Simulated assay, not measured.
Amino acid sequence: MKKLLNTLYVTTQGAYLAKDGECVAVRVDNEVRLRVPVHTLGGIVCFGQVSCSPFLMGFAAERGLGFSFLTENGRFLARVQGPVSGNVLLRREQYRRADSPEASAEVARSIISAKIINARRVVQRALRDHGGKIDGSALDNEASHLKDCLQRLQQPVSLDVARGIEGEAANGYFGVFDHLILSGGPEFRFVGRSRRPPLDRVNCLLSFIYTLLAHDVRSALECVGLDSEVGFLHRDRPGRHGLALDVMEEFRAFVGDRLALSLINLGQIKKDDFEILETGAVRMTNDARKTLLVAYQKRKQDEIVHPFLNERISMGLVFHVQAMLMARWLRGDVDGYPPFVGK
């Protein structure tokens, strides 16, 4: 299972990936900079101007190894994957449940509830650890607001109502997110979410981490044979991986937001690690991306106690556990999908 933790991120512009026996060779200026055995990898992510040998792609596809291609600043472009594994009956059941408003609303409420709990714990963690440095009243009020949103989701509300509660909770949470940023100065001021493109440093950081999360969650879902494009909370849209976005909601605050806050508050990411383009868009420098990727991989190595299994596992395997639990719910092995709630 350890190989599931290992993702090769290639950020060096002009790099070329090729097959070298049973290994992936990364060449820069015709010089081999890295050689990694294929059997130790769970995925390959290429940023910007990184190209791959077709022989390597075919070799990787035969072994279930997928490639993801992103722009230099982390926007997803495409994914190359071999034949889909898993039972066709599992995917047929996934489609049936997705077509059912009741079943979709049920699993969506579970996922949104976990998302709100994890967001609330980020707020409470800040109050506990930094109560004397931050606006405690604003965070206390938001913690109460998120609790109210969570209580409303305990009722059998429709999918549209659940989405409305999720939006309300997200607005409130990001409305106090600036209070969680304790260092970095005015350059790291956060006034609200902005996407495509991100318009400030914090949004740039969050969007990049969410892209990494989406890659890992999508890979985990496809490993168990689920269709990552057919979701319950996120409905069908061409080119959108709805189920991956569904499951990723559980990890946004626990993994993504906490990692972003740590990088800023500990001074690992600084104002000069970003470039502001003429359009107003903000992107990270190559060195900053490498810093983030190292921190993200280190976070995946951390061990936690999984709330459903009650076993200690590495964070990088939690995505795969959640994918398996989703498959078990669809097969009828468990009564409902148990979303991930961190501590």
Score class of each variant (00 low, 15 high):
R196T: 12
D257G: 10
A60I: 05
P156S: 12
L150S: 11
S137G: 08
F308I: 03
C52K: 00
V247F: 01
R218F: 03
V294G: 00
G184I: 10
E142N: 05
Y95N: 01
L277M: 12
L153R: 09
N310Y: 08
R92E: 15
K300G: 15
V88H: 10
Y337W: 13
S85G: 14
D140A: 06
G21E: 11
L8C: 03
P197Q: 04
D246M: 12
G342M: 08
G175K: 10
K3C: 13
E142C: 13
A143Y: 05
M315P: 00
H320P: 02
L243C: 00
G74I: 02
L153W: 10
V341G: 11
V26N: 01
K3Q: 15
Y210M: 09
A288D: 06
D129P: 02
K343N: 13
I313C: 09
S144R: 15
P338Q: 07
M1D: 13
K3I: 08
I264D: 06
L90P: 08
L212R: 04
Q124T: 15
S219I: 03
R125D: 07
Q151P: 03
A244E: 00
S100Q: 04
T40C: 03
N310V: 05
L17G: 09
G167C: 04
Q49K: 13
R120S: 02
L56D: 03
D148N: 12
K270H: 05
A162G: 09
G131E: 05
L41H: 01
A108S: 14
E275N: 13
H145R: 14
Q301C: 04
S51W: 00
D227R: 06
F69P: 00
F59E: 13
N203K: 08
L153F: 07
D178V: 11
G316L: 05
V28R: 05
P156M: 13
G14Y: 07
K290F: 00
I44S: 00
F67K: 11
